[in-house]
């Protein structure tokens, strides 16, 4: 389990990193925390000609609270920083909760948001969170920057629309309505493992009816996704056992779960529905000020 030979380039600016990627003609990989890349190198699943190390690009390590109530997050921000950020906790508590499920302490100290998004594991929390929260992703390339909606960034399991000479630099989270309710439920056989499935919900209670509903799931398809039919099943009425059941049914209907050693598609479909129900209950309880009763 030793990596094959590669050239190492330590970039100190975004421009340098992009130039190094372009110079290697698609044969270079970006290394940030290395928490997914290094195991893949050691298993010799990848053999890039060069690694472009962006850990020295200080300008990519930041969490900025924006004036509109959102956040701008640099791609080099470590998981631990997001987990412990007061701005995340205050403005996007659902993200703060999700971070508690990201791997283990040692991995959180190294792993970065940009790395997780660029790796695009179907069962990772951060791709799901940017999908749920309608993030805008800023990408730098040889020709300058472009902005992508999170929903357009992922292109299948472990695949994104990033070109080989592009680098994800910034994640912008638009503000959530305040106050709002949120729920996040994930299940993995072992703490810190990639999820068998997870569900996240954000909503508000407007005059006793659910509004601004966002519902996303992961681990049950090639990429995390928001389930429009499930959101629609909740909007405009008080959350009840019936609307929860309808939303869960819509999720089970919409997803196409993978089969692997740890769970069949049938089990994952069942599981994600159950997690969605729990996430909705929590979100509604929080939105209606009954959070103490949330399971």
């Amino acid at each position: 389990m030793k990596p094959p030979p590669f050239t190492y380039v330590a970039a100190t600016s975004v421009a340098e990193a992009v130039a190094a990627l372009a110079a290697h003609d698609g044969e270079a990989k970006v290394i940030a925390g290395g928490q997914s890349l290094v195991p893949m190198l050691n298993f010799r699943l990848l053999a890039p000609a060069a690694l472009v190390d962006i850990n020295g690009i200080r300008e990519l390590d930041f969490v900025d609270a924006t004036a509109d109530g959102g956040l701008r997050i640099g791609a080099l921000t470590r998981h631990y920083t997001l987990l412990t950020s007061p701005d995340v906790a205050e403005r996007f508590p659902v993200l703060g909760e999700a971070m508690r499920h990201v791997a283990h302490l040692a991995i959180r100290n190294r792993g970065t948001i940009g790395g997780s998004l660029s790796h695009a594991d179907p069962a990772a929390e951060l791709p799901m969170m940017v999908t749920l929260l309608d993030a805008t992703l800023t990408v730098a390339g040889p020709g300058g920057e472009r902005q992508l909606a999170a929903a357009d960034f992922f292109d299948g399991a472990l695949t994104t629309v990033l070109a080989e000479d592009e680098l994800l630099t910034t994640i912008t989270l638009p503000p959530l309505p305040q106050p709002h309710g949120w729920g996040f439920h994930e299940f993995a056989q072992r703490a810190g493992d990639f999820a068998l499935a997870a569900a996240a919900v954000v909503l508000t209670a407007d005059d006793g009816a659910a509004a601004n509903v966002r519902l996303a799931v992961m681990g049950v398809d090639e990429n995390p996704s928001r389930i429009a039919a499930a959101e629609a099943a909740l909007v405009g009425q008080p959350v009840s056992d019936d609307t929860i059941a309808a939303a869960a049914a819509a999720v089970r209907e919409a997803v196409d779960p993978p089969e692997d050693l740890h769970g069949s598609a049938t089990y994952r479909r069942h599981l994600v529905g159950g997690l969605v129900e729990r996430a909705i209950r929590d979100a509604w309880a929080r939105a209606t000020g009954n959070a103490g009763g949330a399971a």
Binding site: F187, Q189, L196, H262, G263, S264, T266, Y267, H270, L271
Partner: peptide, 11 residues
């Protein structure tokens, strides 16, 4: 495993 219990309980 969860999968086995899920199946064994009639799902």
């Amino acid at each position: 495993t969860p999968e086995k219990l899920f199946r064994q309980t009639g799902n």
